[in-house]
């Protein structure tokens, strides 16, 4: 765990007039991620007037605000909006004597039908890795994953924690259409396509679960910091699945 307060690693830079980014490091690392999600939680519990959204990424948290409201905050020190927000974020970080620790996340289980038409790249992956397909399925479904970031398209979760044996590059030519729910591998990461989009990840399976649903109060099923496991299901279970 990196204690931001102690090491004064808090780097803040302006993204634009209405957003600043706090950087916590520059690597894909669960300790850094916990700093991002911990600081995010702390900020959302104690927001400054004008704050309306935060976006967590691997090692950064971007804070969105209404400049008209922020500039009117006489109690926030600083001349411009950037200074005012920076000062608030630094103050919040210093106040925070304990390093932010996220509570043990609940494990979210996602059913996946591996192979067949649902995971068209699994056979090739098995051949490249010189492993039987069942072994690929076991390696992928026995691991516990961490959501590092939601990005790319609504609800797309970048998951870390892939068994190194399964690491594989993106496809040389991306597919024009990847079906919603497809589970893919790219480099050391695995992820699930929430919508029909083009995509270059190696597809090994598909989930019937809706990763993104605009009718839900939290439209993205997953959020940064969540813990995820995959549960293999049959093609029949996939077809009969109802949320």
């Amino acid at each position: 765990m990196v204690n931001i307060a102690a090491t004064e690693l808090l780097v803040i830079y302006p993204l634009c007039e209405y957003a600043v980014t706090v950087e916590f490091g520059n690597s894909i690392d669960e300790g850094i991620l916990r700093c991002v999600t911990g600081f995010n939680r702390q900020l959302l519990q104690k927001p400054f007037p004008g704050l309306y959204q935060t976006v967590s990424a691997y090692a950064s948290l971007t804070v969105f605000f209404d400049p008209v409201i922020v500039i009117g905050q006489g109690s926030l020190p600083g001349l411009g909006c950037f200074d005012k927000v920076c000062n608030y974020l630094r103050m919040l970080n210093t106040e925070n004597e304990m390093p932010p620790v996220d509570a043990a996340a609940e494990v979210i289980s996602i059913p996946v039908c591996y192979g067949l038409e649902y995971g068209p790249d699994i056979t090739e992956l098995a051949e490249t890795k010189k492993l039987p397909v069942v072994e690929i399925i076991t390696l992928h479904s026995e691991a516990t994953y961490t959501v590092f970031m939601i990005g790319f398209v609504p609800g797309f979760a970048y998951l870390g924690g892939l068994n190194p044996l399964l690491e594989s590059p993106r496809k040389a030519t991306p597919r024009a259409i990847v079906p919603a729910g497809s589970v893919g591998i790219a480099g050391a990461q695995t992820g699930i396509y929430p919508l029909i989009t083009p995509g270059g990840w190696q597809l090994i399976g598909r989930t019937p679960v809706k990763l993104f649903d605009a009718n839900r109060s939290q439209p993205s099923l997953l959020k940064a910091g969540d813990t995820v496991k995959f549960e293999p299901i049959s093609a029949e279970e996939f077809k009969n699945y109802s949320a």
Binding site: G151, P154, F212, P219
Partner: peptide, 10 residues
């Protein structure tokens, strides 16, 4: 749409 950026909604 300003309030769902964290869900990657543009």
């Amino acid at each position: 749409r300003k309030n769902y950026l964290s869900d990657a909604v543009p």
